[in-house]
Amino acid sequence: MSSSLFSVSFLSLQPLKLNCDVCSLVSSSGQMLGRGAGATIDQTSCVWRMNNAPTKGFEKDVGKKTTVRVVSHTSVPLLLQKQQYFFGEANDTIYIIWGPLRNMRQDGQGLVYNMLRQVVKNYPSVKIFVTTEERMNYCDKVFKEETGKDR
């Protein structure tokens, strides 16, 4: 993973380093509701969550711990609607944002990248990583091979 992500916080290539023995991957669907798995999820060393799925109010079913939150470029505006909830709480959540180059460009033309720069200004301790163009191309290739569709 270290060669495929870079940190927005430093605007340079900074590898993401995690030490996880057992991970929980919690999707943003409602499939977990009513399952009471929150305590089990929180016992794992790393908890990965998707997009803007909330935990507050759903702790019994989905837990409250978030180590990494993987966010699609299309969900970044949803995070921004609740900036205090996602970025303002004192936590160690790492955000991994992925999206096509047109949205992640660093030359002032990348709409999502510009949004993330503003988040970093508002919340200097936030840890945001974005995928590299190389990694996005690889993921697009795998997606097309597995589904037969272009993203």
Rank of each mutant, 00 (worst) to 15 (best):
T93E: 11
T132E: 02
L111R: 07
L80W: 03
L33A: 08
G34F: 13
V70I: 14
Y85E: 13
D92S: 14
G88Q: 06
L13A: 09
I96D: 01
V126D: 01
D150T: 15
K56T: 12
V22N: 13
I41Q: 09
K149D: 14
M32Q: 07
D42A: 08
Q43C: 09
R35F: 04
E146Y: 05
D61T: 13
C46E: 15
K149E: 15
T67G: 14
V120P: 01
T67M: 08
Q43I: 00
Y85M: 11
P124S: 08
Q31K: 14
A39W: 00
L16R: 10
V68I: 15
Q84N: 11
R49C: 04
M1I: 06
G99P: 08
V76C: 00
D107H: 03
V120A: 04
D107V: 08
M50H: 03
F10R: 11
D21T: 09
G148E: 09
K17Q: 14
S72H: 05
G99C: 11
D42W: 01
Y95N: 01
Q81Y: 00
S3K: 13
T40S: 12
L80T: 01
S7Q: 14
H73G: 14
C23V: 14
M136F: 11
L25F: 15
V142M: 04
A39E: 11
S72I: 09
V119I: 08
S28Y: 06
W48S: 00
I41W: 06
N122P: 02
K121C: 00
V68Q: 11
M1K: 04
V47L: 06
Q118N: 04
D61N: 13
N103C: 03
L16Q: 05
R105D: 06
Q83P: 01
G36L: 06
A90H: 05
K141C: 09
Y85K: 08
Q83C: 01
F87E: 04
Y113F: 15
L116W: 00
S24T: 13
N52F: 10
K60L: 15
P124C: 11
K121R: 14
T93Q: 06
K82M: 05
V62D: 11
V22Y: 06
V119R: 03
G36P: 04
S28L: 08
V142Y: 08
Q118E: 15
D140F: 12
V112M: 05
C20W: 05
P124H: 09
F86M: 02
P124R: 07
L33W: 11
Y123G: 06
Y113V: 00
N51T: 08
D107A: 11
D42M: 02
N103K: 04
S29A: 13
L16H: 04
F143W: 15
L5I: 03
F6T: 03
L79Q: 08
